[in-house]
Design a protein around this nucleic acid. Structure first.
Lengths: 260, 260
DNA sequence: CGTTCGCTTGATATCTATCAAATCCTGTGG
DNA sequence: CCACAGGATTTGATAGATATCAAGCGAACG
């Protein structure tokens, strides 16, 4: 669970332009208005966008690259709450002080939107508010799915899920893995070693081809069989509702999937 | 991980009143406007407010009682994403189909707000939008903290954290534990048995007094020592930034807390 | 071209799940 | 009001998954 230290960089943020009075009401107008408010920033590997404890009143959106949203605890245990890829917004959750820090993984370009002007825009333009709300809701849904992964999935399922997520994001059978094994571990609640072992195992079984920072998917069905539970295999509660209480009770807890 | 089945109830929802044209712009006005749109509902033990797969276009707010937000997977593993107590909003994350189901734990009274009218209000009244946004952000922050609990905390720390959360919520040394041990387990990513064992151990050590549905806190400092990492012991990233990279690397991962 | 950090693999320890069984509660019916 | 039944809780014994400790390997970088 060791991790490289993020380098604090002087953020080269351009000055805000004076805020024009904007009252267009379409969704598109809202986004344009927002973009006018934002400044474009660039960060290099392991530079901090913000640190936990900071109180920079802004939220961000990734243009390119990957950002790591993480929390470090006094005992050294680190947890990565999420990776923000191109198009993802982050830093939405903070009212005052940052609970997490955000660091660039490799070269990153992003937009920074101060809350102050965002809030003003919000009042002038309902579409902006709706847009923000939607992004927060989207984040919320994403995080809630991760709760199940961390709370109830085996190491193998976690890694498979993670890989599938990456493959789907790029809609390809090839992905560049920007983050380190350690990052992946801290994201999935596993150790570096366990992540390695699972990857090696998947490779041995001919499901993926692994190179340090790139992975190819050679047997999608198998990988899905391992990790798909993530989304699809939910129970239709309605369906179950038909079963009697005791009947379900007797079934008990099914066995967990095969070991490593 | 067995669980009792929720009973699907015919929801006795009152008819909406015709929506008045509201254009007041204060926060208070927003809440009043929202409340006008909502209907008050009541549920009994294990009744479903909504089920996963449902698509009721609404969000909710708890007036009294506790609601369990959970997801059941095909293999029988269940996970509880959150408990919603009095004052908490839930069901905010769903755009279309419900990913989770919501069930009453004991007697519950709550407000139901349809998205359709909420959205309309949002456009008429920026304060409503902001209010919703804030609630979504609040939920987001809460869920993100649970990620760490599930990903990086031991069973003992999880239970201690959970108890502290309950004690803090009521601001008392006594709590009524409405949910079953099984619910707690599914919330913390543990089995019923483990939850029991931890509680028994805490009792044995004189930290809490346990009765089935009520717990007293007799030694707050000890409990905090076990579970407080949850919030407070975060590292000030700034502080660490001073240390050299290698220095921190050599420290390595510290040992985990004492066993059960 | 060497050094360093990250990755990989192996051996072992430990935590928590699983399986099993006794006891306690709670709600129900007499 | 009390006895009963069924589920919930608790405790014990054991197995298994993943963390921890340790060491070699490989790749990136100055």
């Amino acid at each position: 669970m060791y991790r490289p230290l993020a380098v604090r960089s002087g953020m080269l943020q351009s000055d805000w332009e004076t805020i024009p009075e904007i009252t267009c009401s379409g969704q598109l107008g809202a986004l344009i208005a927002l973009d006018r408010m934002g400044s474009r920033l660039h960060f290099s590997r392991d530079e901090e966008v913000y640190a936990q404890g900071d109180s920079d009143g802004a939220w961000y959106k990734v243009i390119s690259g990957v950002v790591r949203i993480s929390k470090l605890r006094a005992d050294g245990r680190r947890h990565i709450a999420s990776f923000a890829f191109g198009g993802d917004a982050f830093g939405l959750e903070s009212a005052g002080e940052r609970a997490f820090s955000a660091e660039a993984i490799g070269e990153v370009t992003l937009m920074r939107y101060p809350w102050a002007v965002t809030k003003r825009l919000t009042e002038e333009n309902p579409a902006v508010a709706r847009y923000l709300c939607e992004m927060a809701q989207k984040s919320l849904a994403a995080v809630q799915n991760r709760l199940i992964l961390l709370g109830r999935m085996t190491a193998q399922e976690r890694v498979a899920s993670f890989l599938l997520e990456l493959f789907e994001r790029d809609d390809a059978d090839h992905i560049d893995v920007a983050m380190s094994r350690c990052d992946i571990g801290d994201y999935l609640g596993l150790t570096t070693e366990t992540v390695c072992r699972i990857l090696s195992d998947l490779k041995r079984r001919g499901i993926i081809a692994v190179r340090t920072h790139a992975i190819d998917l050679t047997d999608r069905p198998s990988l899905e069989a391992i990790g798909e539970d993530r989304e699809n295999k939910e129970v239709r509660a309605r369906g179950f509702a038909a079963a009697s209480k005791t009947e379900l009770a007797r079934t008990g807890t099914p066995a967990l999937p095969q070991p490593l």
